[in-house]
Amino acid sequence: MENDNKATGAFEPKLVAFVCNWCTYVGADLAGTSRLKYASNVRVIRLPCTGRIDFMLILKAFAQGMDGVIVSGCHPGDCHYTVGNYHARRRWILFRSLLDFAGIDVRRVHFAWVSAAEGAKWADLVNKVSGEVRELGPYKEYQGLAGKGIA
């Protein structure tokens, strides 16, 4: 992914979104069919359920040079698999606290519930996260780790 906007040379954050197939992915589809415009720096990775989202994916995304990560799925009570998102929520509670404790910038990891009907919320979410991460700048700390420290 190109890091800098060629036209302006300004920093454009790289974002990845891990989304569930039944709510957020469909919500993002709805944003499309509604022709809502939002920032183009997010790449969506589709998973069946937030329950499938391994915390390792978030770490690997940062290691791969992402400046921000969105994790999103069905609202509580709406999970296609009835409770996958409840399991995910527990995992996120612990994982986020661990990231924070380890000094990782949790402002770069965004969790959100976006339903299949919330195309506008999805567009808003991407715009907001994109804006916030743009403010934070490139995630140099994490990106600097790769290959560093090999004796």
Partner: peptide, 21 residues
């Protein structure tokens, strides 16, 4: 389409996103 061409303006960044996807 839903995740790219319909939600972004015509631009290099949009094409780049499509390539990435």
């Amino acid at each position: 389409r839903e995740h790219c061409s319909w939600v972004h303006e015509k631009s290099e960044a949009t094409t780049q996103k499509a390539i990435d996807l």
